[in-house]
Nucleic acid binder design. Structure first.
Length: 251
DNA sequence: GCGACAG
DNA sequence: ATCTTGTCGC
């Protein structure tokens, strides 16, 4: 179903220079402004209506030499489609080059889907990346679909203020720092507190950044609307469970 | 050389 | 990401 712009496909056989060149190309093609066909404020993980946008959650699980890539499509709390692929691992984990390890398998999984989602949620960074070309940006551009990156830890960039004691729903801007090709001070994402305990113990926020066709503000607003009972947004949790489940079936 | 980094 | 029991706290 998904149309893939082949010239952007992450090729694991490229050398580092070629990979970084492709990332610069990806970054220039990426649109960090709202260009979506749905109303972001209608995204929900609860009871859906016929107009509720379809959100895709994507996540991977690993075996010795194979990678399991799972995608779960949901309309509100309703699972619309689910698929997964198992592929040989072709590239190691290298900070800054994650899309070359996970991107191929993810695109394979998208090709197996019966329908395209309105927006995709990835487990990793989007614009919060040295060359503004994180996993969410790379695959979002390759599919030309709205994409958002949600990372559990910060790859680069700096919060404009402390993220230590945020209440659920609160956010802090992440701005570009000197390690990035982006001009210093550019807002590239947000630290979003998806969940918080009433008292003492603290939960770390997640780091949301636009991947493609979305502004940082809207990307974060969408993830905020995907908050469930856990730290990770619901689409990511579902995909995570699907990947683990598929993995257990294999081993 | 120092720093330092998604999954 | 993955290997893993118990354990502290609401």
């Amino acid at each position: 179903m998904a149309e893939i712009r082949e010239r952007f496909r992450p090729d694991p056989s490229m050398n580092r220079t070629q990979m970084e060149a492709l990332q610069r190309d990806i970054a220039q093609t990426a649109v960090f402004e709202d260009a979506v066909d749905f109303d972001p404020t209608t995204v929900t993980v609860d009871t859906p209506t016929p107009e509720t946008p379809i959100v895709a959650g994507v996540d991977q699980a690993f075996l010795d030499d194979q990678i399991v890539s799972a995608i779960v499509l949901t309309r509100g709390e309703t699972v619309v489609a689910r698929t997964h692929t198992t592929t040989p691992i072709e590239f190691p984990y290298v900070p800054g080059l994650l899309s070359f390890r996970e991107g191929g398998p993810i695109l394979d999984a998208f090709e197996a889907l019966p329908t395209d989602p309105d927006v995709i949620v990835f487990d990793g960074s989007g614009r919060i990346h040295f060359r503004e070309a994180g996993l969410a940006t790379h695959i979002g551009v390759a599919l030309d679909l709205p994409a958002i990156g949600v990372a559990k830890t910060l790859l680069c960039g700096q919060p404009v203020s402390s993220t230590a004691a945020l209440a659920a729903g609160e956010r802090v801007e992440i701005v570009a720092d000197e390690t990035m090709s982006t001009p210093d001070g550019t807002t590239v994402g947000h630290a979003l507190q998806t969940r918080q305990y009433p008292n003492s113990h603290r939960i770390n926020p997640v780091y949301v950044s636009p991947g493609h066709r979305l502004s940082a503000d809207t990307a974060t607003a969408i993830i905020d609307r995907c908050r469930g009972a856990y730290k990770l947004p619901e689409p990511t949790r579902l995909a995570d469970a699907a990947a683990d489940e598929a993995k257990d079936t294999i081993e």
